[in-house]
Amino acid sequence: MPELPEVEVSRMGISPHLVGQTVQSIVFRTPKLRWDIPADLKLMEGLVIRSISRRAKYLLIETEKGTAIVHLGMSGSLRVLDGFIAAGKHDHVDLTLSNGKVLRYNDPRRFGAWLWSPVGESHTVLANIGPEPLTDAFTADYMLEKAKSKRIAVKQFIMENKIVVGVGNIYASESLFAAKIHPLRPANSLKLDEWQSLVTEIKSVLKTAIAQGGTTLKDFAQVDGKPGYFAQELQVYGKAKQPCPACGEAITDLKIGQRNTFFCSLCQK
């Protein structure tokens, strides 16, 4: 599944081609992805795209009448085409622009979403979610307060969107390793200095991933079709039984909250 860095890379990739352009037409080749595709998305036709932002793993394409909300799901991707090309089996949405380019949404598994939020309204998918991890609202003091009565594993805790958005499975493992914190530690057992270290590492790992173009996942490639390059710099994720890059101990893997987790039992306490 594309995680926050992959979604942010997609935002950066499509923005130069879309912002300031008029939507000439929007075409849906399926009535439903994860949810029904709302007919109100047709309101975008004839409108100028004012901005493209990101909230959690959602891309927000803003116009004067409302905002298209796009989620890539498990296998979705966006491409900017120089003109219309015959659609393939999994090409579900086309946005044709005044500059002649076409934004195309491809999703083999159809777990993604295209939704609509009128001006002045907030969509339910964006309600009750935590702060962005790369903003000043995400701090050690904030996490200490949120965790004070939580005995769930810290890895699960930092992956909860209502606590902080966008710390997905890969980057949770990497951040905990960098902060030397065992993923099974109860969230409320971390002291302020440990939260300071973990918050710092989450921000660092995500920034590095964005700079490198997103993790290479089998279902994700950048807007220009090239895969991301951060996977080669992963320290522990996907490296079960390989030597820890810090101490040489074999990397351990187990499931926490039904998600694969990788860590060093010596380095992480």
Rank of each mutant, 00 (worst) to 15 (best):
A250T: 09
G73R: 05
Q21R: 13
V164W: 11
A39Q: 14
K150R: 15
L41E: 01
N161P: 09
L184K: 13
L97H: 12
W114A: 07
G76N: 12
V93I: 15
S173V: 01
G46T: 09
N128F: 02
S265N: 13
G228C: 06
Y171G: 05
A211V: 00
E249L: 06
G66V: 12
I158M: 10
M159T: 07
D141C: 00
D219R: 01
R29C: 08
L78R: 07
L217S: 02
I256N: 03
F111D: 07
C244R: 09
F262I: 03
E174R: 09
S51K: 15
R54V: 03
Y58H: 15
L18I: 13
P38F: 07
A153F: 05
G166P: 07
I163D: 10
P227C: 04
S15Q: 13
P5E: 01
S175N: 10
Q222T: 03
A221V: 15
G46K: 07
R104A: 12
I49A: 05
E194S: 07
A113N: 13
F111A: 04
L41F: 01
G112S: 06
L184Q: 14
F157N: 04
G166W: 02
D193A: 14
T22C: 02
K57C: 09
T252L: 13
K155R: 15
K101C: 14
L198R: 05
N161Y: 07
V23W: 06
M159Y: 06
K255C: 01
E121T: 14
F177Q: 11
L78W: 13
K180G: 00
G20S: 10
G214D: 00
S173R: 02
K203C: 09
G225E: 03
R55E: 12
D107R: 13
K57W: 03
E233I: 02
E174P: 07
I210F: 05
K218Y: 05
G130Q: 10
P2Q: 07
Y105G: 04
R185P: 02
A209T: 00
V199R: 03
A209S: 13
D253Q: 15
V164G: 06
K32P: 04
L115P: 04
P5F: 00
S98Q: 06
D82Q: 14
K203T: 09
R109D: 03
V23Q: 09
F262L: 04
D141A: 15
E3P: 03
W114N: 07
I202A: 08
M74W: 06
K191S: 15
G214V: 00
W116V: 04
A240N: 10
D141L: 12
D253R: 15
D224W: 08
V119T: 15
F111N: 03
I251Y: 05
I251R: 12
L43V: 07
L43I: 11
L81I: 02
V93R: 06
T22K: 14
I158D: 03
L4V: 01
G130K: 08
C244Y: 11
I52D: 06
